Simulated assay, not measured.
Amino acid sequence: MRDLARHPELLSINTATVRERWRLDEAIDGIARAGIRGIAPWRDQVAAIGLERAARMIRDAGLTVTGHCRGGMFPAGDAAQRRRIAEDNRRAVDEAAALGAQCLVLVVGGLPEGSRDLPGARAQVKDGIAELLPYAQDAGIPLAIEPLHPMYAADRSCVNTLGQANDLCAELGAGTGVAVDVYHVWWDPRIEAEIARAGEAGRLLALHVCDWLVPTRDMLLDRGMMGDGVADIRRLRGLAEAAGYDGMIEVEIFSAGNWWRRPPEEVLAVCAERFASVC
């Protein structure tokens, strides 16, 4: 397993971690000043400063774009909405290509409004990715399916285990892979086998880290800094690396009550320290 204390260049920051205090241009500058070499921007942040400017600033700062957040949200209540979603996902692919992103992260979406048809939503996810895939392949952008914790099945993602994500990739084929986020999969009793399965197929596209707090006070906005919770981050990273993952490791923390309130420079310094000592 890689010694992260000796390889700080492997750290990437998902800009959600500092989004409440910094615009994207400020985050690019701040991350580069901190000596961090990777970044993963969000689409709304890119739009706020303009795609061309964002791409130029990231290139000039010498940062690697470990992922673009996010595409997906495929399930819809009618055909017109599905067409709008498909168009938006193609724009997300275009943005990822312009930014030089290593992948487009897919948060696939949950139940359409008023629906209780979870199998139907999952079928729409498969169909939506299948429709997007040729466009992404032409652009050279891998699609990274990110399974989310089951508490998000209704509203954010009906793909809730790495096994489900692996099954989708196996059906859809080349150009698809998985983003493994410790926050969402640390609890999964099949995680060892499914990480190995993803690695064997060459599907491990991204590795995201933060921690699971006890208690977790908000389903979305109370993620922990690495080392502050109960997830065995180092074990999961070891599983990923044993399965062939050799990419950067992305810190993604949504923390309305704690880390978003702190000066971003402090947050980045703690991220770097915990990356070296905990991850």
Rank of each mutant, 00 (worst) to 15 (best):
G173V: 05
A154I: 12
G199L: 13
P75Y: 09
E95K: 02
I195D: 12
A54L: 06
A242K: 12
L104V: 09
D44H: 15
R234S: 13
Y152Q: 13
C69D: 08
R237T: 06
F74P: 05
P41A: 05
A54V: 11
A98R: 09
A139S: 14
L207A: 13
V180M: 03
A16G: 07
D94M: 03
P119H: 07
L143R: 14
G50W: 04
R90M: 08
M73N: 08
Q102P: 04
W260G: 04
A193Q: 15
R262Y: 08
I31W: 00
A79K: 13
C210Y: 01
M73S: 14
R122W: 03
A243M: 01
G50H: 05
I129S: 10
V18D: 00
C210Q: 09
D29P: 08
G199Q: 11
R235S: 09
G227L: 14
L207Q: 09
A276H: 05
G238Q: 13
V182R: 01
Y183H: 12
G109F: 04
L4V: 05
I195H: 06
S255D: 01
E194S: 10
V105N: 12
C69E: 03
P41D: 03
T64M: 06
M219V: 14
H208S: 13
V125Q: 03
V18I: 13
L204A: 01
A47H: 06
I13H: 02
I249V: 13
D94F: 00
R70A: 09
A40L: 05
M1I: 12
V93R: 00
G35W: 02
A54I: 03
R116D: 12
R274K: 06
T15F: 07
A174E: 15
P215W: 02
I58A: 02
A269G: 02
V251E: 08
A97Y: 07
D44V: 13
G77C: 09
I13V: 15
I31R: 00
A256Y: 07
S157H: 07
A76Y: 10
T66I: 06
G202V: 14
L268S: 01
Q45E: 12
W259T: 09
K126N: 02
Q81F: 05
E252T: 13
D44L: 14
N89P: 05
V178T: 06
A40G: 15
D127C: 05
I36V: 12
I49R: 00
G71N: 12
T64V: 15
D155Q: 07
V270T: 10
C169F: 06
A243I: 04
E131A: 15
A153D: 01
S12M: 04
D25S: 08
A196Y: 03
R203I: 04
D167N: 04
D155E: 05
R274H: 10
